[in-house]
């Protein structure tokens, strides 16, 4: 790709070179994955179809059998188009709001409703995690004691399987007196209270990439640059705001993309053991209880779409910010 880009004179031509260099291979790989998926769904669903044929004494051609494997209600592996039909039906085909007990509420049959219930805590947790992560990184860079004592434990904290502590966080948080007081005083609603534990769990997963990235970023200015700040007799604060922080921005965005994906995983996992009724994780769980494979896959794809959208959004933000800061593309 770089060879093409170097030779191309104009910016448009360069962009075209980059696109045509990547799009064709990516499309090929995606098509291959879809083809393998179709083949696998025929193979895996065939047993049930053949069994049905035998029981009902039917005669079917091979083509009919293949077609039958893709129209089952609870296939072992649903075909891609079945999953997309389900996603279409549960997003566009269902009203977003419905009337219940005299007031308009979100419609739990709509997949967007569940995505909303997962995205909110994800974003909240991402913000908390990013804030804490940056704070920790600033401390680690400026204090040797903090670097030596906190960093190993930050790494260790990520080896604790998050699912294990999810139920505990839910129990502890829902019993916090401060939170309960806030609910009874009407400052936050009951729904918001349910959102807090999920957000905390996703914050737990998302703070770590930010710490690692920011520590690397804040340390990225070269010794020469730091010495220059010294010759200007800049204080620690000035060095931080004018040199370290701007230098860390590219690192920050790279780790933010990792951390928002982690935050989404955190929220989905948090919904599993906590008996959440709404959210993509809850959708997965009910799907697995009732053997609704198509529902599981559609929830899975919705989660993937959310993750992709969030990462792309951050990518756009990154491009914009770096451009404003005067970075060369």
């Amino acid at each position: 790709m770089s060879a093409v880009a170097d030779m191309a004179p104009s910016r448009g031509a360069r962009a075209f070179g980059a696109v045509s260099g990547a799009v064709l291979p990516v499309l090929t790989v995606v098509l291959a994955i879809v083809a393998i998926w179709y083949a696998a769904s025929v193979m895996m669903n065939r047993a049930w179809t053949l069994d049905q044929i035998q029981r009902q004494d039917l005669e079917m051609t091979t083509m009919e059998i293949v077609a039958a494997t893709m129209t089952q209600e609870r296939p072992v592996l649903p075909a891609p188009h079945q999953v997309f039909a389900e996603i279409w039906n549960t997003t566009v085909g269902e009203p977003v709001m419905r009337e219940r007990r005299g007031e308009m509420q979100g419609n739990p049959r709509n997949l967007l409703f569940h995505a909303y219930h997962t995205l909110w805590p994800t974003l909240l947790g991402f913000l908390i995690g990013t804030f804490l992560g940056i704070l920790l990184a600033v401390g680690i860079v400026h204090s040797r004691a903090m670097d030596m004592s906190v960093m190993p434990w930050a790494i260790a904290s990520q080896t604790i399987p998050i699912l294990a502590i999810a139920p505990i966080i839910v129990v502890v948080v829902s019993n916090l007196p401060a939170l309960n007081n806030a609910v009874s005083a009407g400052i936050i609603s009951e729904d918001t209270k349910l959102l807090v534990p999920k957000a905390l769990i996703s914050a737990y997963l998302s703070f770590f990439p930010v710490v690692v990235g920011m520590v690397a970023g804040l340390r990225s200015p070269r010794v020469m640059d730091l010495d220059l700040m010294r010759t200007w007799s800049a204080s620690r604060g000035q060095t931080f705001w004018k040199l370290r922080l701007p230098a860390s921005v590219p690192f920050l965005f790279t780790s933010l993309k990792v951390s928002i994906a982690a935050a989404l995983v955190g929220t989905i996992v948090a919904e599993l053991p906590t008996g959440a009724r709404f959210g993509l994780g809850a959708r997965l769980l009910t799907g697995s209880y009732y053997g609704q494979t198509i529902q599981i896959w559609s929830a899975l794809f919705m989660a993937a779409i959310c993750a992709a959208a969030l990462v792309i959004l951050l990518g756009v933000l990154e491009k914009f910010t770096l451009k404003r800061m005067g970075a060369q593309a």
């Binding site: 990516v26 697995s288 599981i296 989660a303 993937a304």
Partner: peptide, 21 residues
């Protein structure tokens, strides 16, 4: 060139969700 972007994309997805399947 095809697998790297796709792999990077899939690595960012919540694969844990495949557990019930």
């Amino acid at each position: 060139r095809g697998l790297l972007p796709v792999g990077n994309f899939i690595a960012a997805l919540p694969i844990v969700g495949t557990a019930p399947i």
